[in-house]
Design a binder for these strands. Structure first.
Lengths: 267, 267
DNA sequence: TACTATTAAATGTCTGACATTTTGACAAGC
DNA sequence: GCTTGTCAAAATGTCAGACATTTAATAGTA
């Protein structure tokens, strides 16, 4: 007897429940967020297809489609005859837009991932703003202005915090897009989990909010006036303010503004 | 009669043939490369599942798995009852590692994509090298040296051109990885199609090769000596040489070093 | 010990059927 | 003429069961 049919199924315990009429997309979301929450260590075996079928009461086909999504995001690896297992964090496709969606809805944000993403933004975004100041057209400016107006109008109101966060995302995404390079533009997807997680967990004072708004406005203005250096500086100052909020929000005062080093061996 | 059962099936004509024992991965590759080659315009309808089944003589299941890959790469969009259609180039997930694999094997390289990717490298890679010079450890240096030695040993030999290209890719990927940031590291996947396409299509003279080797060596040395500014400059000069080779290789002397602007409206 | 055949477990694929979503045609009613 | 409701067709989404293939462990044998 190799089955553990009636056992407690420990490996399935971290899985949330699923609505009864779920489709493959929802199932993939549940599974992905369980991995992103760190419920499995890299190299750990992932539940077998049939176990997942029983646990969620869905067909094997649906499970396979969901697992295919996780595979294409680099979260798991599969092999006929051997099973599925969780890949190490360095192999995850952080730039897959699907990953952004999964990360955004996470209740407990993955601290290491957030540090990595923010460190990336810190090193890249000022330069993106510089490119944007060289290439932005009228449409880009309109997008920036729409997003900024949304931030201004929803500032300070606790009921409109989600709206404020979305406008914040839209603003930064508009900067990436204004670079008029398809690769940078794709990278804008990375912003959502980073910004949402921050806004949700930080309690800003009104003064901080005004200051943040003003710094965003300077970025927009520099891009409008085609001043690359000014745009670079203004963006760096926006991120500096964000880093402040971040260190206030997190109980552990990590060095969020220096490039964190980790991920030693690898293979 | 709405079926066009026996028609010439024009929409299937750009599809290459498939080996008889193909799996979903191969089928996805054939379909993806057909799209990447530009055989469909954005918004064009993609063949229906059953047509693809007949054309390739495979099961519907296999076709569906292949189409799921294309969907997760942002190449097509699907909707129950309406069918599948090709998305516009700005929505393609250029940073999906799977896309790099598909692009690399392409016979006719997609000129716009290659320009976009190279423009990105030109704007980002010097800064990545700067980060690498701050964060590289012994293992990173070993990887760089291994790759550079491979480039040196295979230089000039027409029979070892693929090997040379692979080492070139490995060198630049090692720089991205040495930044010790997971996001930049993932971005290293983007290098392969860019470098391979260039090496395959350019006929370098021996002197150019030596020069390229020397410039790569300077990058490695600057990283080893922890000299960020020198690493930045050296990388910029490597890319400058590459740009020269590019403009020699392409018959149309496009402005490959300026950020190309395109993609106007796009909702 | 070393090698081979067997068996079981897990994922990969095939087939056929039904469910759901979307669109268009058509007729009834105002 | 215009709207509205109903129906059918087309396309993708899901289910169920069977078989194929790959992998690892096991038992048997020289």
């Amino acid at each position: 007897m190799f089955h553990e049919e009636n056992g407690p199924d420990m490996s399935l315990s971290p899985l949330a429940s699923l609505s009864p009429d779920a489709d493959a997309r929802e199932l993939a979301t549940v599974l992905a967020r369980a991995i992103l929450s760190g419920h499995w260590n890299p190299g750990d075996g992932f539940p077998r297809e049939l176990d997942l079928c029983r646990h969620f009461a869905v067909s094997r086909n649906l499970v396979r489609n969901a697992l295919a999504s996780l595979t294409s995001a680099g979260l798991i690896e599969r092999s006929a005859g051997r099973g599925s297992w969780v890949r190490e964090i360095g192999d995850w496709h952080l730039l897959d837009p699907q990953m952004s969606v999964w990360m955004t809805g996470l209740e407990t944000t993955h601290p290491q991932l957030m540090r990595e993403i923010f460190a990336f933004r810190l090193s890249a975004e000022p330069h993106v703003a510089e490119l944007a100041a060289q290439a932005a057209d009228a449409e880009d400016l309109a997008r920036l202005e729409r997003a900024w107006n949304g931030m201004r109008d929803s500032a300070g109101d606790p009921k409109r915090r989600n709206e404020h966060a979305e406008c914040d995302v839209a603003f930064h995404a508009a900067v990436y897009r204004a670079s008029h390079n398809l690769v940078w533009r794709q990278m804008g997807h990375l912003l959502r989990p980073s910004i949402i997680a921050l806004i949700q967990h930080s309690q800003r004072r009104a003064g901080d909010l005004d200051d943040s708004l003003e710094r965003h406005r300077r970025v927009m203005e520099a891009i409008r006036l085609r001043q690359p250096q000014a745009a670079r500086l203004a963006t760096a100052q926006v991120l500096e303010r964000t880093a402040d909020d971040l260190s206030k929000a997190s109980s552990t005062v990590a060095s969020s503004s220096s490039i964190p080093e980790l991920q030693g061996p690898g293979l």
